[in-house]
Design a protein around this nucleic acid. Sequence first.
DNA 1: TACATTTGGACAACCGATTGCATTGATTTA
DNA 2: TAAATCAATGCAATCGGTTGTCCAAATGTA
Lengths: 343, 343
Amino acid sequence: MNEKKKKISIYDIAAVLGVSGSTVSRALQNHPAISEKVREQVQRTAREMNYKPNALAVNLKRGYSKTIGVVVPYINRNFFSSAIEGIEEIANKVGYDVLICQSNEQHEKERKILHSLSQGKVDGVIASIAYETNDYTHFNNLAEDRIPLVLFDRVSDEVKAGTVRGNDYQGAYRVVEYLFSVGCKRIFHYAGFQHVTVWRDRYRGWLDALQACGITPGADWVRTGGITQDAGVAFAREILQGKALPDAIFSTSDWVALGILLELMRNGVKVPEEVAIFGYANEPFDELITPSLSSVDQFSKRMGCAAARMLIDKLNGENPEDVIIEPELIFRDSTRVSGMLSV
Amino acid sequence: MNEKKKKISIYDIAAVLGVSGSTVSRALQNHPAISEKVREQVQRTAREMNYKPNALAVNLKRGYSKTIGVVVPYINRNFFSSAIEGIEEIANKVGYDVLICQSNEQHEKERKILHSLSQGKVDGVIASIAYETNDYTHFNNLAEDRIPLVLFDRVSDEVKAGTVRGNDYQGAYRVVEYLFSVGCKRIFHYAGFQHVTVWRDRYRGWLDALQACGITPGADWVRTGGITQDAGVAFAREILQGKALPDAIFSTSDWVALGILLELMRNGVKVPEEVAIFGYANEPFDELITPSLSSVDQFSKRMGCAAARMLIDKLNGENPEDVIIEPELIFRDSTRVSGMLSV
DNA sequence: TACATTTGGACAACCGATTGCATTGATTTA
DNA sequence: TAAATCAATGCAATCGGTTGTCCAAATGTA
C-alpha cells in the first residue's frame, strides 16, 4: 500500500535483465534485430513488472499525440452526442483517443479551447462552430500549427477546412414541396440565425421551393432567432396574433417546432388539421409526442463517422473530398393533413 | 503555404535573442531571477513567433497530464451526456481536459480502455461501470498506477473508489409509498440486472416499501432484464397475458416504462386509470409523451459535477467523502390515478 | 587460418520542456 | 582593496521513451 511504487520504465526492466534500455525498447516492439531469447525474456519481465509504456514520452518522441480534439457547442444534445458517438467509434478503431470540449455556443470559449488544443494535445480537430462565433481566425490559425480541421454541420465558408454536412437546402426544399403537394399554401418558416450556414441553407431551400411553387411569402412568414423551445412558443404567439393562420410551419429546429406545436394546441389550434408542422433534426422525442412530429433526419452519427474518417485521411496525408449527407424526410402525424392519403 | 514551418520551441526563441533555453523557459514563467528587460523581450518574441508550449513535453517533465479520463457505457444517452457536461464544466475550470471513452456496456472494451488510459494519458478516471462487467480487476488495477478513481451511478462494492450516486433505494421506496398512498396495491416492478447496484437498490427499495405497506408481492410481479424500450413491450405483453392486471408498474428505467406504456395503451389499457406507471431517470421525453410519464429525477449533471470535484480533490491529495444525491419524484399524468387530488 | 559477413546489442542523441547548480560580473561590506 | 553578497543567466541532467550509428562476437567463406 504505502510502498512508493514508482511507475516503472524500460530502464527498470533493463536493470533487472542487465541489458540496455534500447534493447528493451526494441524487444517490446518486436524489432528484428533482437534475438528471440532476449525478446521473450524482456516481454515476460515487462508483463511481470506490470510495465506500461508512458504515452506522453512516446508521443513526444514521435511528434504526435494520437488524439483527436472534438469541439461542439454542447455535448448534451442528441445531435452532437450521436455525432460524437460516431467519431469515437471510428477514431478508436484506428488507435486515436478523443478529447471532447464544449464551446457552450460562445466565441471566446471556443477560441480558448482551440488555443489549448493546439499546444500539441491533438493531431487534428473536428468541430461544429458555435453560433455566437463571428470571427473565424481561431479556426484558420490551426493551419499554422499544421493541425488539420474538419467541420461538420455548422461550417463556414470563411474557414478553410474539410466539411461534412447534410444537404440542408435540399432537405428544406423537399419539405416545402411536400407540404405544397398536400395542399398547403401559406407555409411559414422559423429560421435560425442567418450567419450559420445550415440555417441559411434551409431558409433558402424554403424560399426557393416556395417560389418554384409560385408562392410569394409575406414578410411575416419568417422569423429568425435562437433554436429553443421558448423561441417556438414566442413565434406561435406572434402567429396567433396575426390576421390569418398559416397552413403549415416549417421549423429549422425540432425544439422550436415543439414549442410552436404545444403553444398552438394550448390555444385550441388543431395540428395538423389547421396547421401542419414540420421540424428538422429528427430528435428522439419527435415520435413520442402527440401528434408525432414530422422531421428531417440528418443521420448525425453517420456525420460523426464521416468527419472522423475524413480527419484521419487528412492525418494520413490524403486529401479527402467534402461529404454531403442526404437527409431523409420522416413523415408523422403533425403533417397528416386532411385530404391526403396516409403515407 | 508550403514553407515547412516547424513547430517553434523555446530554443528557437532563445536563438533569436541569443540567450539560453532555460532563460526563455524561466522568462515565460515569470521566474523572479530573470531581469525585467529580458523577460519582456522573451515574451514579446514568443508572441510574435506564435510560440505555443508543447503540452506533451511539459507534462512528461512534470509527471502529469492534466487530463481526466471518463468512461461511460454510451455518451449518447441523456443521463450520461448530462453527467459529462457537468464533468467537463468543473474540470475545465481548474485546467483539466476531459478524455471521453465509451465502453458500449462491454466488459472487454472497458478493460482495454482503462489499460490505455493508464499509460500516463490521464491523471484520474471517472467511470460508470458497463453492465456486462462482472470482474472488476481492471478498475482495481488503476490503484497500482496511482490513478485515482471515482465511480458514479453504476458503482460496485468490489471496487475501491470514491463514489457519487443517487439514493436509489430511497427513490424507489418513495415511489412505492406514493403509489400506495393513492390507492395502488398491486405494484409491479421492472428491475434491471441485479448485479448492478443502482438497479438492485431500486429493487430493494420497491420490495421493502411494499412490505412496509403490508403487501407481499407475487412471484410474477417483478421481472429483471435489459433496459430497452423493447424490454418494456415484452414485459407489458407478459402482464397482459397474466390473470390480473397490476394497479401500477414501477420501472427502473424510463425507456422500459415507455415500452410498457405504449404497449398497454395499444391493447386498450388505460393509463393511468387502470394502470399507473412510474419511471426512473426523468428523461427529457417524459413530459412530452401522452400521458406524460412520472419519473424520478437523478440530477445527472449535478452528479457529473460532484464526481469531477471529488476526483480533483483526490488528485490534490485530499480524501473526499462519497456523495449521495437525493432524487426527486416528478409526478405527471401517468400516475394521476382516479380518486386522488391533483398534485 | 585469415578475412568478410552477419548478428545482437550498447551508446548516445533527440523530442521540448523544467530546474538544481555553477558561473560571472556588479555591488556591498569590512 | 580584498572578500562577501547578490542578481542574472548558462550548463547539464532529467522526464521516458525511440532510433541511427557503431562495435564485438559469432558465423560463413575461401
